[in-house]
């Protein structure tokens, strides 16, 4: 018994499962954290019961992370589909406040993210910079929520007696596949423009760097973001990309850094239901190219509405 206990203490020391980056205390056994997936605002384990062990820089396992399955994707899509009507019809102001709140919650838990990024191989300085950028990214997109519409909408002066205007509407449910470059900044940079635009999403975390992604869902859960708007799975890219892009109730897929083969698969599978395929051209998420209203535009549809205008005779045309 005591042997198990001491092993746990050592393991906790090494991988920081439950330490949250707080000062280690040799007298106390830390509580280890279970890294679960996030579906419909709840934290289930993968239905498959499988796990995998991402490793730290020392080559040792960091945690038993859920190895998500195709069925998890399907469950997450159900949650995302259920949430999209409500989220899309929130006022832009309200969405903006909630995105701002995500930034606030992230700020408050900076230390934990820095800690996890360090576990994934970042230096302390790199990790601090990444977390700061990730927070600021939410503030950036919070501000876009009630502005991008005015930027990309139009009133169209048609040649007949009609009032005609085009506005943006969210595409719907978006699948997001993370790349592998960062644990946090890339993740928030992929999610923020999608939900700023009123979509809901099913996100697959970086396979190699899942810890901050899972912890980030805890931020979302305490940010007034309705359950189901963001759903996050961990697991193998090779297993989850295809279920994501071939799911018939996903409207768009955003995929970071696809290989040539993956790109071909994306376009081919997406044709089944005319999913929009988005591959961000961003090379470095830490630069200003990593944030843009054009990234919001990627998961929007243009809707044009016509209505007749009654034309009276008199009044000098109102002038």
């Amino acid at each position: 018994m005591s042997k198990t206990l001491s092993r746990s203490i050592i393991k906790a020391d090494l991988n920081g499962h439950g330490t949250n980056g707080a000062a280690k205390n040799a007298d106390r056994l830390p509580v280890m954290k279970t890294y679960k997936i996030y579906i419909g605002g709840k934290f289930p384990r993968t239905e498959s019961g499988r796990y995998y062990q991402p490793t730290g820089t020392d080559g040792k396992p960091l945690a038993n992370v859920c190895r998500g399955s195709r069925k998890d994707v399907r469950d997450a899509v159900v949650a995302a589909r259920g949430a999209v009507g409500g989220w899309a019809s929130r006022s832009a102001f309200n969405r903006g406040q909630i995105l701002y709140r995500i930034g606030e919650m992230l700020e408050g838990r900076s230390a934990q993210f820095v800690h996890e990024l360090v576990l994934h191989g970042a230096t302390q300085k790199q990790a601090e910079a990444e977390v700061a950028l990730a927070i600021d990214r939410w503030i950036h997109y919070a501000g876009w929520c009630d502005k991008y519409q005015a930027l990309f909408s139009s009133v169209n002066p048609v040649n007949t007696s009609h009032f005609n205007f085009s506005v943006l509407e969210p595409t719907g449910v978006v699948g997001i596949m993370s790349g592998g470059s960062n644990g946090l900044l890339e993740l928030v940079s992929l999610i923020a423009p999608v939900i700023a635009g009123g979509n809901t999403c099913v996100v697959v975390a970086s396979e190699k760097h899942p810890l901050p992604a899972v912890t980030f869902t805890e931020v979302l859960a305490t940010s007034d973001l309705p359950g189901g708007v963001v759903n996050l799975l961990t697991g193998f890219r090779s297993e989850l990309l295809k279920p994501l892009v071939s799911h018939m109730d996903i409207n768009a897929v955003v995929c970071a850094q696809p290989t040539k083969e993956e790109r071909q698969m994306l376009d081919t599978e997406a044709a089944a239901n005319m999913k929009r395929v988005v591959v961000p051209k961003v090379k470095d998420w830490s630069t200003t190219e990593g944030q843009s209203p054009y990234l919001i535009l990627d998961t929007q549809e243009v809707k044009t509405t016509w209505h007749p205008i009654e034309r009276g005779q008199g009044g000098g045309g109102g002038y």
């Binding site: 169209n156 002066p157 005319m274 044009t304």
Partner: peptide
């Protein structure tokens, strides 16, 4: 992508046309 309210089948070069979904 295109909604006609109290009219139908109207088109114009200034008016974006195209679809959602399939």
């Amino acid at each position: 992508g295109v909604i006609w309210a109290n009219t139908f089948n109207k088109f114009d070069p200034t008016s974006p046309f195209g679809g959602y979904k399939e």
